[in-house]
Design a binder for these strands. Structure first.
Lengths: 140, 140
DNA sequence: CTAGGGCTTCCACCAACTGGAAGGTCAAGC
DNA sequence: GCTTGACCTTCCAGTTGGTGGAAGCCCTAG
């Protein structure tokens, strides 16, 4: 299989597949004309990668997940550990975004959004907030 | 004020402030020794930037927000428009993360996480999913 | 034999910083 | 007067995960 074929099969752009080879995630063979030659196992691995990335796993996580996938003697605990850490990162991110969203939605709501210059959004951004007092004479 | 002073006041790292100068967000003066000299207005602008970035606005958004902030004849509608677009991006991101989270949480739940190799997480990643059929003979 | 599509490499770019090296400046203390 | 240490300067490289594009083979159909 050439790169175009695995691209179609895995749904990944050819560019991305070359990048994955660059970072050592796949190691396709080369035919005499220099073209990459992908085995079934490579195609399979690329599909695995596509799904892992779609779940937001980092490239490094993917590397570890694939290593575990290929290790028949793995402990599922190791996989679960990676997934749980990722879950935690996702939760943190969601929490952060929700807080932004709340603040922003509140401001948008308060803004007339007309021809006049008065704007609570800008007013808020221009104002020092609680907890934002800079640490000056905090020593002592 | 030197960079360390505005850094302390704004809560931004000096490196970041230099970067903001690089991209044209602040234009501090220079004293004879080559040090950046920040006016009150620069410090104020940096604080504004810090808060905007904390709400997740991009640098480009910040550039526009500051321009509007400094334009006495702005229409609040322009500000609101930027904020609403950003709100939408945040909502999209939250939705995406929530979907990842749901899938992942489900998989983590199903995984024993012990010494045995059997792992529903890996099994799922290795399996083709609905809607993932690649477009082969889709033409016609 | 030529046109096209597919393949190759390499380089540059995106966001928004961050780290580090090499070196100039300044105020305090001896 | 000199040293020490905290600041400051610039510049270069790295981060994450690709993406876009140029220049140039390769291969097949007409």
């Amino acid at each position: 299989m050439n790169i175009g074929d695995v691209a179609a099969l895995s749904g990944l752009p050819a560019k991305t597949i070359r990048y994955y080879e660059d970072v050592g995630l796949v190691k396709p063979l080369r035919s005499t004309n220099g073209y990459r030659t992908f085995r079934e196992s490579d195609a399979h691995k690329l599909a695995f990668l596509g799904r892992s990335r779609a779940l937001g796993f980092s490239i490094e996580d993917c590397r570890n997940l694939i290593a575990l996938y290929e290790d028949e003697k793995r402990a599922s605990a190791e996989v679960k550990d990676i997934a749980e850490q990722h879950l935690e990162r996702i939760d943190d991110k969601i929490a952060e975004l929700k807080e932004m969203r709340a603040t922003l939605a509140h401001l948008v709501d308060a803004c007339a959004g007309d021809h006049r210059p008065d704007c609570p959004i800008l007013a808020d951004l221009a104002t020092k907030h609680r907890g934002e007092e800079q640490l000056k004479n905090t020593a002592l």
